[in-house]
């Protein structure tokens, strides 16, 4: 059971760049782990650290005022590339609870939501507003399905009811799926042709 998600208030951390792929979020050399935990220190490793291992002062994760930010604002097509669930695991372990981007890659979004990381597409005007209010506080309210900026901007978002319920309860599809086992067995028994 994960921490239920209902309302999040945090300052934002911004990477204004499109097509941020999962190889950046968590480079492949860290995928030899058999655990889910402990990936936060490798999140964005190749942007965050210089070749000698020291922090890259230009990358937003290392900015003093980004400390404690739980909302990542990023460009379109965030999370494209591989299906590695290590990407949302790493972001969550690094303290990120929500990603707001003009569009989010399918598999990443699915993986994120199943782990309690709220990955939400936002429209272009809200994205621009978030860029202007970089580092300011944003409230995401899952109950009311609203995003509120500290300048009073309010935007409503759609989230599919099933996923929203899972997030708010801190559950995933597992229990739902297990309850369907009789229907699954029935399907298997009745198939006229199995490819």
């Amino acid at each position: 059971m994960r921490t239920p998600f209902s309302r999040l208030v945090s300052k934002t951390m911004v990477i204004d760049q499109s097509d941020i792929d999962t190889d950046q979020i968590i480079p492949a050399r860290f995928l030899t782990t058999t655990q889910r935990e402990g990936l936060g220190k490798h999140c964005f490793a190749d942007w965050r650290y210089q070749a000698d291992g020291s922090p890259n002062p230009e990358f937003v994760f290392n900015h003093d005022d980004a400390a404690g930010a739980a909302i990542l604002v990023a460009g379109a097509n965030f999370g494209c590339g591989s299906s590695r669930e290590h990407a949302p695991w790493a972001l969550l372990d690094a303290g990120i609870r929500a990603v707001l981007a003009p569009s989010i890659a399918d598999i990443f979004r699915n993986n994120a939501l199943k782990n309690g990381l709220l990955a939400l597409p936002v429209d272009e005007s809200l994205y621009q507003r978030l860029l202007q209010r970089r580092g300011h506080a944003v409230e995401i309210d899952l109950q009311r399905q609203g995003i509120v900026l500290d300048d009073g901007t309010v935007a409503l978002f759609e989230l599919e009811p099933f996923l929203r319920r899972c997030l708010m309860e801190g559950s995933d599809d597992f229990d739902f799926l297990l309850a369907r086992l009789p229907a699954i067995a029935n399907f298997e028994g009745e198939r006229a042709w199995t490819p």
Partner: peptide, 22 residues
């Protein structure tokens, strides 16, 4: 199609996935 590790668990346990039709 590709899936994440949580869904790998779902398929192992139930041979099914919850999916919206693309």
């Amino acid at each position: 199609f590709g899936i994440g590790t949580t869904e790998v668990g779902h398929v192992l346990a139930t041979q099914c996935l919850m999916q919206r039709k693309p």
